[in-house]
Design a protein around this nucleic acid. Sequence first.
DNA 1: TTGAAAGCGCTACCAC
DNA 2: GTGGTAGCGCTTTCAA
Lengths: 339, 339
Amino acid sequence: MQQIRPRATMRDVAALAGVSLKTVSRVVNDEAGVGDAVRARVRAAVVQLDYRHHQAASDLRRGTGRTRAVGVLVQDVANDFSSRLLRSLEDAAREHGLAVLAGSLDEDPDRERALVADMVARRVDGLVIMAATSMQDYLQPEQRAGLPIVFVDREPAGIAADSVTVDNRGGARAAVDHLLERGHRRIAFLGDLPSIVTANERHLGYLESLQAAGVPADPSLAVLGLHDEDQAQRALESLFASRTPPTAVFTARNVITVGALRALRARGASWRTALVGFDDLPLFELLDPSVTAVRQDVAALGRATAQILVDRLAGDASPPRRVVLHPELVFRASSNAPV
Amino acid sequence: MQQIRPRATMRDVAALAGVSLKTVSRVVNDEAGVGDAVRARVRAAVVQLDYRHHQAASDLRRGTGRTRAVGVLVQDVANDFSSRLLRSLEDAAREHGLAVLAGSLDEDPDRERALVADMVARRVDGLVIMAATSMQDYLQPEQRAGLPIVFVDREPAGIAADSVTVDNRGGARAAVDHLLERGHRRIAFLGDLPSIVTANERHLGYLESLQAAGVPADPSLAVLGLHDEDQAQRALESLFASRTPPTAVFTARNVITVGALRALRARGASWRTALVGFDDLPLFELLDPSVTAVRQDVAALGRATAQILVDRLAGDASPPRRVVLHPELVFRASSNAPV
DNA sequence: TTGAAAGCGCTACCAC
DNA sequence: GTGGTAGCGCTTTCAA
């Protein structure tokens, strides 16, 4: 292994160039007021010593309190929805010279609090959170200290803050309305825990749609608390094993939809069971039958979120904004199955 | 808008608690040597003032040069492969109390250098890079300064550093061997720019396989420089429009495979064209025909990478490690099409 | 145009 | 047990 050479500081550069520390600082920061000859000498010393600016020390002394980094906490950076959102935010952050500290919460409230604490200790300039907690009042001190916080995908509770969300209830209603219009009456609901706001909203939309159509909701057709594909697959298999199986299914999240698709496939029931999923996936269009889905415009979600954050960073102190995007039902073949 | 209250410093806490700065530091860092009464008073002041530890200042003073953050630069955090790798690394980092600074490179060498420079200025403890540059000698000064760098997915050039990669050539050979065994002779290759090491390796594997089988490679069947689905789709459509279309296709990346699937679907040629893709996708199993693919164990890739990084952070100064994982051919229906 | 001194928020070292 | 002093690497006065 080669010898490691400790990083050079401005002092080292100053010594080598035969100038004062302050002059090096001026050159490194491209400030005026340094003669060309001196500037060149300093530049040479910088190169020779492989000097690298120490941003943390600089930030500390400047006292602006800015680190040019933002924290982005999503449900799971490997999930299609979360990762596309993260990417959209990264692009916006990049335009403004901001680095992105990313974290996955896995619907774990403790993890959210721990990660937020870490981001605060790092003095990120702003925070974007897809909350796993049901109550975010613990963030009030941070907000009071001037930290811009934008909630994405899920509205905050216990704190007045910006949010960019999707009309989950409306999207779910549209999905179930669609199935009802095709004559279905036994429509199953597969969703995650109702403690997750979006999951609950989608469940409520399902119930509202049934009620509006005068179709009594059969509680045995609604399965909540599904986290992954396997659970969703097993849940749907159970429903099919019952005496009165559903003729249609509304799946309230992308992984749940995939699990349901596996169950239908295994049972050979893909063409005779109607399916609508919340969240579109790139390959849904290519499946047989292609999958009808409620599509969220993830890029728009990210853009709106980033815009608010950037405005706040620029000093915008107006009241919290609430942006609600409306999802779109993408009609494909999977919802055409007969009753 | 509420009043913003500047963050309290240890000095403020000390003043409120009526103790010295150093005592506050002891309490905040859970050090011994503070009486219970004093400790309680300090704790109360911390809560009252919403004091938050300033990690950067602490790191600076400690002089360990550690920030407990690592940089992870992948191709695109929204891509299935990259995002799963990122997640795997995040999990490992979390276990060691490391935060993750994430960045997408989009195969842009300038962007890689810019992001690396930023990470260095932030003094990350380590760097994981899915390189977009063809030469990484520019990282030598950072390595010399003691920064652990692990290259993932693509081996480094111009620098001796750790790497965790996949046997791309072998994987591609297995894919094409498979198609040859089924009797195909006109096998198309759809891949990205040969300047991307992995893309080139997969192309070489394709050529090697053909050569080993004594099948002359028809250059008109190989299309390189495909970046996204649309380009891949159009490329395959062009091949089909030729006088001597392929009977089989090897697609060298996940987005290319999806583009090819669209082309086959649009043409109604899915069942009569054999297809093998490099990179598996969650829904390939559910397509008709299901898609045969060369699967990389992304989680294992991430784990191996993280392990090396963690070892280096712990002081391991042994010679650079080269880990090569072997992908697996997952047989499904898409490669069964007749010649 | 250049530099010396002070200090950002915090902790190591050594007094008491 | 507790506190003062010095100083991490840097930038801000302000003086020369």
